[in-house]
Amino acid sequence: RLRTTILPEQLEILYRWYMQDSNPTRKMLDCISEEVGLKKRVVQVWFQNTRARERK
């Protein structure tokens, strides 16, 4: 499996959503993934990793 590259524009959108809610619902993940143009699972893992980084 290839690692997904997240573009700066996509990152900006993801962080904007993250500021609103760091733990989005499944429905929100659907909306975010549509807006960003990434698979739902990629967005979900990005949120998990970002929460983990914040805890450090």
Rank of each mutant, 00 (worst) to 15 (best):
R1T: 01
R1K: 15
L2S: 14
L2E: 14
L2I: 12
I6R: 06
P8I: 07
P8H: 09
P8N: 06
E9D: 08
E9K: 07
Q10F: 03
Q10C: 05
L11W: 08
E12A: 07
L14E: 06
L14Q: 05
Y15R: 14
Y15L: 13
R16L: 07
R16Q: 08
R16S: 09
W17N: 12
W17S: 08
W17L: 07
W17D: 06
Y18D: 04
M19N: 13
Q20N: 08
Q20T: 08
D21Y: 04
S22Q: 10
S22L: 04
S22D: 13
S22A: 13
N23I: 00
N23Y: 10
P24F: 03
T25Y: 04
R26Y: 11
R26P: 14
R26H: 12
R26F: 09
R26N: 15
R26D: 15
K27L: 07
K27G: 12
K27I: 06
M28H: 10
L29Q: 06
L29Y: 07
D30H: 14
D30M: 08
D30Q: 10
D30N: 12
C31M: 14
C31F: 05
C31W: 03
I32C: 03
I32E: 01
E34N: 09
E34I: 01
E34S: 13
E35S: 04
E35A: 04
E35I: 00
E35T: 04
V36H: 01
V36S: 13
V36A: 12
L38P: 05
L38F: 03
K39D: 15
K39C: 11
K39W: 01
K40C: 09
R41M: 10
R41A: 15
R41S: 15
R41E: 15
V42M: 07
V42R: 07
V42E: 15
V43I: 09
V43K: 00
Q44P: 02
Q44W: 11
V45S: 09
V45Q: 12
W46F: 02
W46G: 02
F47T: 04
F47K: 04
Q48T: 07
Q48C: 10
N49F: 05
N49L: 06
N49I: 05
T50W: 02
T50C: 08
T50H: 13
A52N: 11
A52C: 13
A52M: 13
A52I: 09
A52V: 08
R53H: 11
R53Q: 14
E54H: 06
K56E: 08
